[in-house]
Design a protein around this nucleic acid. Structure first.
Length: 759
DNA sequence: CGGTAGTCAGTTTTT
DNA sequence: CTGACTACCG
């Protein structure tokens, strides 16, 4: 180190205590320049081209595993080496995990620089923007962010207030409509205009709900996810000074996973980058899997139209997967008609063949996965974290979890039952939110009677009506309770609650989040009350609460914004995938959606059954089916060395057992040399798992499953007449179908004996 | 007001 | 099968 000199100063000078941020910055830049040649050597020709195209709009088509993150991080390093200040660089990713990963990798290239470059998700960028500019955009800088659960509560109260039928206007559906409207830049007023012109009654009611919903959010001082984007974009559009400020600040913009951006996100980038035009977007239309969330694939396909002078670079060399994996993935994705043709290639060897496992049910499938992980670990000295298991729906994780627990395999489930969604955690958080902003009605309703303080339905109804009469929040209604018909005991309780929150709010500016949280536990007696319950469940809840306290500690040790606002924002926008690091040697379980952007030595894709993956009715709609197929492609291309595809003949959903046929994606891989069946045999010592490898007639078998007696096909039976196949199980001689006959009755029939004719 | 039993709908996928 | 919600009684 002392040998390194910057100009006339020895490097250690810069590392001494007197070093300023600026000096450190210059030192780091020096290091980058020194190593830039080395950096560039680590890139292939196309990647280097993408890194070196410093100015102007740039579109990078980056196939799976082609070093997309590498290009972005090296590009940032290159920009820094060219004298661009880290403060002028904005990198936007889709998930927090991706942002974290990028930061980490920049830090590897340019130590300490990861923190200075603004890298965030769209949503956290907007949250930061709106808080910083709150004064200019007419917001309280302490606004809360409502998650989907909070949204649901608000929507429900809207429906109640408007005397609508929850069955006709389902909260979940309404949230979806409103969220999609916001993605498309339609605020409540614009939506209302559209609804009126359409003459559609349903849409007009939705417009009313939308409007009421927004006023309720405002009353509570809250924004939902969609608002973060919508308001940011509206303000950038309307406020010239603001727009110029951000255009000036962010001279270089990079957007990851551009294929998944929605219209609002597209506009955000367009506005900020309009001046410098230094917009670099990276994406892959084959990995677009969020259209259901408003993502518009046209954003990537029409980038060249938006920026006529843009340069386009295609990254096609895959560094991740063996050629076996890559070619099967290609065989699957090429079935999509709506895609830009790309030819990924690799100079890696063929590698292991893809292994197909057929199981009788979900339990055996899980056992097979667990068994295979143990076998591979013994054989190849793999770590647990080299394995990942993907599935289409979160519900599938439970069975896997059971098997892993039985086998003693350490695992981590990412995303399913979220820690922050547990009742006891939400209760503590609701207190924190009230301390931060007592007008938060959702939190107020949540904890007004937790722990029990004798405030029930009647009291709440009275309070609600005061609030709506006066046009204030529930908290704001408290001073008026003297005039309402509220039992004196309840009145006293409300008063005490108010004093409690006020007490907790005292000194909040000077206390750490942890101190505030501990004060909540202390003053509310929440833990003590749980202890008194003395049940296993209560014990569990107490444990979770302490886990929350350590999560807060963790937050405070790591985050740059350690305020209560910062913490609550983080809780709303960050999921636990960000806390997972490879340092924990655990098998990772997650949905296919969450897997995007990650890679593992060995990947299991489970539940490959028609109706589950592709899910539900999606196979009847070409667009839906193609998105499912892209999801399959994303899953397959996560694997570096080994890929397992498994399915179960029957699966229990909602306590009902369904018979399924293998997913069409299985046969689309075109690489089925053999199928493994896992059978559990009863031996003297108990149960024994037997693996059977079926090599012959594999293709015929799958074809038969799909074509001979496909679900939905019409059949004729001598005795029962005409009908439709609605379910299916077994194979070969044991192939059984359930037929719903036109008479209305249904029968389970063994195909071999039933003598059915396909009509 | 609070507890409990009974009903009913719901699982895609996420910031 | 679960969790969320409702209705009724102590």
């Amino acid at each position: 180190m002392p040998g390194v000199h910057i100009g006339e100063y020895p490097a250690f000078f810069f590392l001494s205590r007197s070093c300023t941020r600026e000096m450190l910055f210059r030192f780091l830049i020096f290091c980058i320049i020194k190593h830039m040649d080395n950096f560039l050597d680590q890139l292939n020709e196309k990647q280097r081209e993408a890194v070196l195209l410093k100015d102007g709009p740039l579109l990078i088509f980056a196939g799976a595993g082609t070093g997309k993150t590498r290009v972005i991080t090296y590009r940032i390093a290159y920009l820094l080496s060219q004298g661009v200040s880290p403060l002028n660089i904005l990198a936007v990713t889709f998930t927090n995990k991706a942002a974290e990963e990028m930061r980490r990798r920049i830090d590897v290239l340019v130590p300490g620089m990861g923190r200075s470059v603004w890298i965030s998700t769209f949503h956290s960028f907007c949250a930061k923007f709106l808080r910083t500019e709150a004064r200019h955009v007419g917001l309280d800088p302490n606004f809360l962010i409502y998650d989907e659960n909070d949204q649901k509560q608000v929507i429900k109260s809207c429906i109640k207030e408007l005397n609508l039928d929850e069955k006709k206007f389902k909260p979940a559906r309404l949230i979806e409509i409103i969220s999609r409207a916001k993605d498309d830049m339609l605020d409540a007023d614009s939506y209302s205009i559209h609804a009126l012109t359409s003459g559609d009654y349903f849409r007009q009611v939705v417009a009313t709900i939308y409007g009421l919903y927004q006023s309720k959010l405002k009353q509570s001082g809250a924004l939902d996810f969609g608002d973060l984007l919508l308001l940011t974009v509206i303000n950038l559009r309307e406020n010239k000074a603001l727009k110029e400020k951000y255009q000036y600040r962010f001279r270089y913009i990079m957007v990851d996973e551009y294929q998944d951006t929605n219209h609002a996100q597209y506009l955000l980038i367009k506005y900020i980058g309009a001046e410098s035009k230094n917009i670099c977007v990276v994406g892959d239309d084959d990995q677009s899997i969020y259209s259901w969330r408003g993502a518009d694939i046209r954003n990537i396909l029409e980038f060249e139209k938006d920026y006529p002078d843009c340069r386009t670079i295609k990254l096609e060399q895959n560094y991740r997967s063996t050629s076996n994996i890559l070619s099967s993935a290609w065989h699957v994705i090429k079935n999509n008609e709506r895609r830009v043709e790309k030819k990924l290639w690799t100079n890696k060897e063929e590698g292991n063949p893809i292994k197909f496992i057929e199981n009788r049910n979900a339990i055996e499938e899980s056992e097979a996965v667990a068994g295979e992980i143990e076998r591979l670990r013994n054989k190849n000295k793999y770590n647990f974290c080299d394995f990942s298991v993907f599935y289409r729906t979160n519900a599938q994780s439970r069975v896997l979890e059971d098997s892993f627990r039985r086998s003693g395999i350490p695992y981590i489930i990412i995303g399913s039952v979220r820690f922050y969604e547990r009742a006891e955690i939400k209760n503590v958080l609701a207190y924190l939110r009230l301390i931060h902003n007592p007008h938060d009605n959702v939190s107020f309703r949540r904890v007004i009677n937790i722990p029990k303080r004798g405030i029930g339905k009647t009291t709440m109804q009275a309070l609600e009506s005061i609030a709506s009469e006066k046009g204030v929040s529930l908290w704001g209604a408290l001073p008026y309770i003297g005039f309402a018909e509220i039992a004196s005991s309840a009145r006293k309780s409300l008063f005490n609650f108010k004093e409690l929150i006020k007490e907790l709010q005292k000194n909040k500016e000077n206390e750490s989040v942890k101190e505030i949280a501990l004060k909540v536990l202390d003053k509310t007696n929440y833990v003590a009350e749980l202890e008194a319950e003395d049940t296993l469940e209560a014990k569990n809840r107490i444990e979770n609460i302490f886990e929350l306290i350590s999560a807060i500690e963790e937050f405070e040790s790591r985050s740059s914004d350690r305020t209560l606002t910062g913490y609550l924002t983080q809780v709303a926008l960050v999921n636990e995938i960000d806390d997972w690091t490879e340092s924990n040697d655990k098998v990772v379980l997650m949905t296919l959606h969450l897997a995007k952007g990650l890679e593992f030595k060995t990947v299991f894709i489970t539940g490959l059954e028609e109706g589950l993956f592709p899910i539900g009715e999606s196979s009847y709609d070409i667009d839906d089916l193609e998105e499912e197929r892209r999801l399959m492609y994303v899953g397959m291309t996560r694997a570096k060395e080994s890929l397992y595809l498994s399915w179960a003949q029957e699966r229990t959903v909602f306590g009902k057992t369904h018979w399924n046929i293998p997913s069409r994606f299985v046969q689309e891989t075109q690489s089925m040399d053999s199928i493994f069946e896992v059978r559990t045999a009863k031996a003297d010592a108990g149960e024994e798992v037997i693996e059977i490898e079926r090599k012959e007639g594999v293709k015929e078998y799958i074809d038969e499953q799909h074509q001979m007696f496909a679900l939905g096909s019409r059949v004729f039976h001598q005795k029962f007449g005409k009908g439709k196949i609605i379910d299916k199980s077994g194979s070969g001689e044991n192939l059984k179908v359930i037929v719903l006959f036109d008479t209305g009755q249904w029968k389970k029939l063994v195909v071999k004996y039933a003598n059915l004719d396909i009509i």
